[in-house]
Amino acid sequence: MSTDPAYDRTAELRALDATLAGVRGLVASGVTHVPRIFRLPDPAEQRLRAQEQPPSAATIPVIDLGGDRAAVVDAIGRAAAEWGFFQVTGQGVPEEAMAAAVAAVRAFHEAGGGEGSDKARLYSREPGKAV
């Protein structure tokens, strides 16, 4: 991240939050550059990260919960430690229910975020309030 002592990322995030427009609002406003809060760390820091060896295949781990319990637990631990996320299959949730959940999440994130909306009511950067 930035080493500029004058840069206040938290203040910039709060200013974005105060617009209630989010990234969609930034795009609609015609921004001509990526705001600093969304930029990657400086190149020196990226070079250090590049020296760490990532997993050989750029494929999201897929874990089938229908397998042997010990193997599933081990696979979850590895995926969480190495990737930070993974896809779960074999959990027994009907395809229709998963599709409905994805559609609801997409609709929520694509909806306007003005004051009084579900989005504004639920969203917070405060760790104790975050959804």
Results as ranks from 00 to 15, higher is better:
residue 90 G to K: 06
residue 99 A to M: 04
residue 51 Q to K: 05
residue 97 A to C: 05
residue 130 A to K: 15
residue 19 T to R: 05
residue 74 D to K: 07
residue 35 P to K: 02
residue 25 G to P: 01
residue 6 A to P: 00
residue 57 A to F: 09
residue 9 R to H: 11
residue 52 E to S: 13
residue 57 A to G: 00
residue 125 R to N: 15
residue 82 E to C: 00
residue 127 P to D: 12
residue 70 A to K: 08
residue 18 A to I: 14
residue 130 A to P: 04
residue 60 I to V: 14
residue 25 G to C: 03
residue 69 R to P: 05
residue 101 A to M: 11
residue 88 V to C: 14
residue 47 R to H: 08
residue 14 R to V: 02
residue 40 L to P: 00
residue 91 Q to E: 04
residue 73 V to N: 00
residue 89 T to D: 02
residue 55 P to W: 11
residue 76 I to K: 03
residue 91 Q to C: 03
residue 22 G to D: 10
residue 46 Q to Y: 02
residue 48 L to N: 06
residue 127 P to M: 11
residue 8 D to Y: 03
residue 1 M to D: 07
residue 2 S to P: 01
residue 109 H to E: 05
residue 11 A to Q: 11
residue 51 Q to Y: 03
residue 34 V to Q: 07
residue 58 A to W: 11
residue 116 G to S: 10
residue 16 L to E: 11
residue 41 P to R: 06
residue 113 G to P: 08
residue 102 V to S: 07
residue 88 V to I: 15
residue 100 A to D: 15
residue 72 V to T: 05
residue 105 V to M: 07
residue 114 G to C: 13
residue 98 M to I: 15
residue 59 T to P: 05
residue 25 G to D: 08
residue 74 D to W: 01
residue 130 A to I: 07
residue 41 P to K: 06
residue 101 A to F: 09
residue 96 E to K: 08
residue 91 Q to L: 01
